[in-house]
Amino acid sequence: MIEHKIGGEMLKVENISLSFGIMKVLDDISFDIKRGEIRSIIGPNGAGKSSMLNVINGFYHPQQGSITFKGETRKQMAPHVAASHGIARTFQNIALFKGMSTLDNIMTGRNLKMKTNLFWQALHIGPARTEELENREAAERIIDFLDIQAIRKKPVGKLPYGLQKRVELGRALAAEPELLLLDEPMAGMNSEEKEDMCRFVLDVNSEFGTTIALIEHDMAVVMDLSDRVLVLDYGKQLADGLPDEVRNNQTVIDAYLGIPHEQD
């Protein structure tokens, strides 16, 4: 675990309950995320982890509870509002724009930074051109950071899985988010790709100071990366604390970890 610049509270989730019909997906969940930390959410499949992220960035509307982000308390917010307040995310099942190139995907991630109107865009001169070039530079910085120069102009639909995950991270980073939600960024990767991805996550956190909420199944990764870990099970909050506390928590062991996970 890295000792670094963890600041005050950035996001506070209070008593969130979410259900679809009779199915209760989240049941009275409360936790917070501090500025600059890597906060993991773990739990078995169907525990409500992805739903929790969907609530945070406004895609699902919880029946109860409230979310305080950067000091503002809301019951819910529209996804694009969340995006414009600096929340970006990646998805469990890759949700890239398949017909577009890597560069275009990342440029789309910057759409909130771009303002010129249809008229200038049609002429492609003046402000539209300047804006496009400025944002292209920013996009290229991310492409360099993620080391994906070679696939810049390739349609993403045809890229291998590991690279798609990386482009998706790039698209989220392009928005220069304050809070980055990563939904199983390493699922289905081999150990080499996982290592790369871990390094990117840590670099994003330390270099850009981005706060990260991470869902991940690989316990070794979670315990290594996270500052704090929240454990969900069937929509209920099982435990919350430092990685070591969670690892040794008997309820968590019983419900999820089974036997203590092999370490290092």
Partner: peptide
């Protein structure tokens, strides 16, 4: 039709 729950 039933209400579709969209997932991501």
């Amino acid at each position: 039709g039933e209400r579709i729950i969209e997932r991501v």
